Amino acid sequence: MTTIRTARGRLALLPVVLLAAWATGCGTKHAGDDAGAGGASPSAVVTPSAAATPSTPTDFPCPGESPTPTPRPSSHTPSPTAPPTDHYAENHGFMVPFALHGKRRCQGLAAVGRVRAALEPLRRRGDFTAESARRALAGLGYSAGQVQTYQDGTAGVGFLVEVDEYPVCVEGRMAGARTEADAFGGYPDHTGCDQPSGGH
C-alpha cells in the first residue's frame, strides 16, 4: 500500500510541476537557440537597444508648394482654459483632428485649392449665404452629403467638405477679406469629418 500512496502523490504533483516548468520557460528565447536550424543567427537577435522606435511621418513638397512648407497652426486645436493639471488635453483628445501626411497631405492641399477657387467669386461679389456656398462646392462634384455650409456670424459662411472616405476633410470660413481653409484627416474614434461631441 505504501507504494500506491507514493505513486498517487507523485501523480498529483505532476500537473503542478508541468505548470511551473511551462510558466518559467514560456517566451524565453536565448541567443543561438535557432542557430543551425534555419532560424535566426545570434547576431539577428533583437536586443532592447536595437528595438524599433515609431517613426515620424515624413512630408515632402506637394505640387505647387515651396520646398520648405511652413507649418500652419490648425484652427481645430482646442485651447485649454483650465490649468494643465486637470488633464484637459487628455480628456479632449477626441476633438483634435488627425494631421495629413505624405500623399494624403498633397491631396488635402489640392482640395483646399479647389475649394478656395470655387468660393472666391462669391467672396468678391459679397455673396455670403450658406446656400450659395453649398451650390459652389457641389459644383466641384461633391454630393449633398459631403458638404455642410452654415452662416458664421453676420457676414460669413462656414463650410465643411468630406473630400473622400479616408477621410480627407476641408474646413474653413469665407468672409469679407478672404477665404480660409484647412485640410485634416478626421478625428480619433469617429468616422466622417464633423467634430465629435463626445469621446472616450
Rank of each mutant, 00 (worst) to 15 (best):
G27S: 01
T154Y: 14
R134T: 15
A40P: 07
A82N: 14
L13R: 13
G172L: 00
P71G: 00
F94W: 12
V168M: 02
K103Q: 11
A21T: 08
V112M: 05
Q151P: 09
D86G: 06
S66R: 15
E120L: 07
M1Q: 14
T85Q: 11
Y88H: 15
H87C: 15
D152A: 11
S75W: 03
A51M: 14
P69A: 10
C106A: 01
K29A: 12
K29F: 13
P84Y: 02
G156E: 07
V170T: 06
V16D: 09
G153Y: 00
L18N: 01
G153M: 06
G156T: 02
R114I: 08
K103E: 12
A111I: 05
E65W: 00
D164L: 02
L160D: 11
G156A: 03
E131Y: 13
G25F: 15
G158V: 00
T6Q: 12
A111Q: 05
V96H: 08
G36Y: 15
T81G: 14
Q195N: 03
R123M: 01
M1H: 02
E180H: 11
T47G: 01
A136P: 09
T2F: 07
Y142W: 12
G192Q: 06
L100D: 08
A20Y: 03
G145L: 03
Y88A: 07
S41D: 14
P63K: 14
T149V: 06
A133M: 10
L14F: 03
G39L: 01
A23M: 10
A89F: 10
A20N: 04
H92V: 05
T70W: 09
V16M: 12
D59H: 05
R178V: 12
A144Q: 15
G38A: 04
T149S: 04
P57T: 00
G102W: 11
Q148H: 02
P57A: 05
S143E: 07
F94I: 00
L19E: 10
T149K: 12
P83F: 02
G172A: 06
P67D: 04
Y187M: 06
R5I: 09
V16Y: 09
A138R: 06
H200R: 02
S75E: 14
L160N: 10
Y142I: 00
G39D: 13
H92T: 11
L137T: 11
V168I: 04
D194W: 06
D189G: 00
K29P: 06
F128M: 05
A40M: 04
A51N: 04
T53D: 07
T154N: 10
T3E: 14
P54Q: 10
T129D: 04
S74C: 10
T85V: 10
P84F: 13
G93F: 05
P71D: 04
V147F: 04
G9R: 12
S41C: 11
E171K: 07
H200P: 01
